[in-house]
Design a protein around this nucleic acid. Structure first.
Lengths: 231, 231
DNA sequence: TCACGATTGAATCGTTCGTTTGACATCGCT
DNA sequence: AGCGATGTCAAACGAACGATTCAATCGTGA
C-alpha cells in the first residue's frame, strides 16, 4: 500500500524542480515548456499531462514557494500581536516578520540560494499581470495585516503617506531579492561572501528609518483608506 | 533644399511612437512587431527596414528616453557640485537630482504621463539582460557620479553599507515608477488625483531618511570598492 | 495471467514570431 | 524622359511556441 492514493510519478517533481530553476534564472516569460522538459529529461507532453498547461505548472511553482512564505508571515505577525497585545510592536520586528520568511524558506528548497531569492523576487514583482488568483489572495491578505501593523506602529504618519512609504519598502525588498548579484561582488566584507542575514539586517534598518521619517514630534491622525501591495 | 540630407519618412516616427506606447503598456517582451506596425498603421517590414531589427527599434526607443534623462541628471549633479564646491551637497538635493529628471521628461513626450513612468521604470528594471550597451554606459556613468556624491554627503556610512542603501533606493524608485497605479487609487488626497510632484517629495524624504539611518554621531570611514547600479 | 487505468513517447497540429524577398511606387535630379 | 535612391506593400520564409493525438508501455489489483 502506498501512502498516496493518487499515483505520483517522478516526472511531476522533476518538472517542478526544473521549472523553478529555469524560471528563477531566466524569468517566467523566457522559459518554454521545451526548455523545462529538456532539463527534466521528460517528454514535451508531460507538462500538459501533469499540469494541464504551461500556466498550470507556473501557478504550482509559485504556490509551492509563496504559500509557506505567506503562512510564516501571518504566523509571525500573529505572534507579534500576541506578544505586544494592545501596544504596537516595534517597527523593526514588523519588517522582520515581513522579510525573514522570504529568505527563511531557502533551506527547505533544493534550489541554489541566489536562485531562490530571484524566484521569490520575480513572483513579488509580477503583480497584477498573470498571477494566479490564489497568490493574489495571499498578497492581499498579507498586505492588509501588515498595513494595519505598520499603521499601529506609526500612528503619527497619515495613511496616505504611510501607503506610499510601504510601497517604497516593497520596491526596495523586491530589488534586494532579484538583483543582489550586483552588490554581492562589491560587498565582500571582511571575510568572504556576505550572508543574507547581514543584508536583511541592513534592509530592516533602512526600511525602518524610511518608514518613520519625521515621526519624532507629530500627533496621531485618524484612519483613512487602505491599499493592497504586492508583498 | 530640405533641412535634412537624410530622408525622413513619417513611418519612422510613427513606429517609434507606437512602439514606446506598447512597450510602456505591456512590457518589452510582450509586444510583437506586428502589434507595433498595426498601431502605427505601417507594413510589417517597415520595422526591419528602418531599424534593422526589432531589437534595433527597442534600443532606439530606450535611447530616446534615457539619454535626456542621463544628461539632465549629470547636469544637475554638476550644478550641485559647483554650488557646494568643496562641501558636500545636501542629501535631499542629490536624490532630487537623481529622480526629478526621470519624471521631468514627461512634458517633452507625447506619451501619456502614467505610460511614460512605466516605460522609464521598465528600462531601469531591465538591467543586465538585454539592455543596449549605450544605455548600460549611461547607467554606469550615472552610478559612479551619484555614488561619489552620496559618499561625500554621508561620510560616516561605510562604503559597503552605503552601496546596499543606494541599492534599496533604486529599487524603491523603480517600483514607484512602474507600479504607481496601485496607489493612485488610494492616495487621492484632499483634491482629486495626487501630483507626481507630491509623490516625488514623499520619495525623497523616504530615501534620505533611509540613506542617513544612524549617522548622527558616527565618524567618517575610509574609502572602499564601488558598485554599479541600474539607475 | 489478465485487464485497466496511469504514464510515457514520437509525431504533428495550428499559431505566432522576427525576418526576408521582390515587385511596385514615389521622389529628386540631370 | 530617364535613372537611381528611398520607401511601401503583400506574401512568404523558417523557426519556435503551446497544445494535442494516439499508440506503446508500465504498474498494480483482480
Amino acid at each position: 500500500m502506498r501512502e498516496m492514493t493518487i499515483p505520483e510519478s517522478g516526472s511531476k517533481r522533476k518538472l517542478l524542480d526544473a521549472a523553478e530553476q529555469l524560471f528563477a534564472e531566466k524569468g517566467f516569460e523566457a522559459v518554454s515548456v521545451r526548455d523545462i522538459t529538456q532539463l527534466a529529461k521528460t517528454n514535451v507532453a508531460s507538462v500538459n499531462y501533469h499540469f494541464g498547461s504551461r500556466d498550470g505548472l507556473l501557478a504550482l511553482v509559485m504556490m509551492r514557494y509563496m504559500t509557506p512564505v505567506t503562512e510564516e508571515r501571518l504566523a509571525r505577525i500573529d505572534s507579534l500581536e500576541r506578544k505586544w497585545s494592545g501596544k504596537s510592536a516595534p517597527l523593526e520586528e514588523i519588517i522582520d516578520a515581513l522579510v525573514r520568511p522570504l529568505v527563511g524558506q531557502v533551506r527547505k528548497s533544493e534550489l541554489a540560494e541566489r536562485l531562490f531569492y530571484k524566484l521569490t523576487g520575480r513572483i513579488c514583482a509580477e503583480q497584477g499581470d498573470g498571477l494566479p488568483p490564489q497568490i493574489e489572495d495571499q498578497f492581499r491578505q498579507t498586505g492588509e495585516r501588515f498595513s494595519r501593523a505598520f499603521a499601529k506602529a506609526l500612528p503619527t504618519v497619515p495613511p496616505e503617506e504611510l501607503a506610499w512609504r510601504i510601497h517604497f519598502v516593497i520596491g526596495a525588498m523586491i530589488h534586494m531579492l532579484t538583483h543582489q548579484e550586483i552588490l554581492h561582488r562589491v560587498s565582500g566584507g571582511v571575510s568572504g561572501a556576505p550572508t543574507m542575514e547581514a543584508t536583511m539586517s541592513r534592509f530592516i534598518r533602512f526600511a525602518a528609518a524610511g518608514l518613520r521619517e519625521g515621526t519624532a514630534t507629530e500627533e496621531p491622525v485618524k484612519k483613512g483608506p487602505q491599499a493592497t501591495f504586492d508583498f
